[in-house]
Nucleic acid binder design. Sequence first.
DNA 1: CAAAACTTTCAATAAATATTGAAAGTTTAA
DNA 2: TTAAACTTTCAATATTTATTGAAAGTTTTG
Lengths: 173, 173
Amino acid sequence: MYICLMKLEEGRGKFIQAWGSLGSSWGISKSMAQIHALLLSFPEGLSADEIMEQVQLSRGNVNTNVRELINWRLVRKETVLGERKEFFVALHDVHTIAQNIMEERKRREIEPVRRLLSELKATTFEGDATEIKHFQTLINDLADFVSQMENLMGLMTKINSNTYLKKMIKAIS
Amino acid sequence: MYICLMKLEEGRGKFIQAWGSLGSSWGISKSMAQIHALLLSFPEGLSADEIMEQVQLSRGNVNTNVRELINWRLVRKETVLGERKEFFVALHDVHTIAQNIMEERKRREIEPVRRLLSELKATTFEGDATEIKHFQTLINDLADFVSQMENLMGLMTKINSNTYLKKMIKAIS
DNA sequence: CAAAACTTTCAATAAATATTGAAAGTTTAA
DNA sequence: TTAAACTTTCAATATTTATTGAAAGTTTTG
């Protein structure tokens, strides 16, 4: 596909659908990814009913996934004067988005690993000395790597406000 | 738990089980994570039957997930002179592991996003000018972010052989 | 070549996860 | 206070993903 012309609505629809299926491959639910894509596509907030309408999901599903997006700090609630219902707006700054996703993933995916490894590090093993050594080396190496990973994720959130850093990373990678 | 004493076998078992459940939270199957943990725990390779025995999984499951681990370049086959069956050994260097995981995730999770965004970047939209502008800004921002991400993942694989880089990252993050 | 020793495949099944929608809960306005 | 407007919950259901195990396939050995 070299050139392509389409209605904006169609483009948004395509983006939303594609983002939804991509979502699965990063371990978040399709609906959540779709709703996020939808809210990102609109500068203004949408109501629950509008979301239901646009992505064809049930009320319960929209409610659950919007709440989850709020937990991830990717979306916030807004109320409009004179309107009774709530509106949901995505955070539109990509670097803030990235930062919040990083933080959440750290919490969910890195922290538990760290806990496991600390626990194993703190235990003394009985058995064959060589095998113990191998196992302990593994645990230590993994622990080192995990903190490396955390540093790097921290770095990612710093890139945010730092063009110099951005250039540096590009240069050394 | 401040001090703890246990048999090595028990420690390995604990590690394997925990790694399995963590696996789900990073979007890989429990069995695959368990098998990986098992093979990491042993310096020498194990046969399919030994894996089945140790992690209590069916032959088919072991076969499938070992193949997957080989695709990810986290495990390789080994044959032993005079033995008919195959043995599977984990790569034991944590940084090589990290590097291979990064590459695989890039391929699976980043590449498809890049493709989608390029496609949307290449299309011309019809509709309200302000809305189009918002949507295009979104697409461009996401595309920028994705390449940023790729740079950083590249950087991660470089840390491997570079202690200086490691210190630098720690310093700036 | 045939049987033994393995490995691979894949349809059936189980388990985990996501989604629905109707009922219950809450807030606001008159 | 009560009815309307809206949000939340959650048991039932659907969908997706992982796992099993027996049958088919392959390679090696005698």
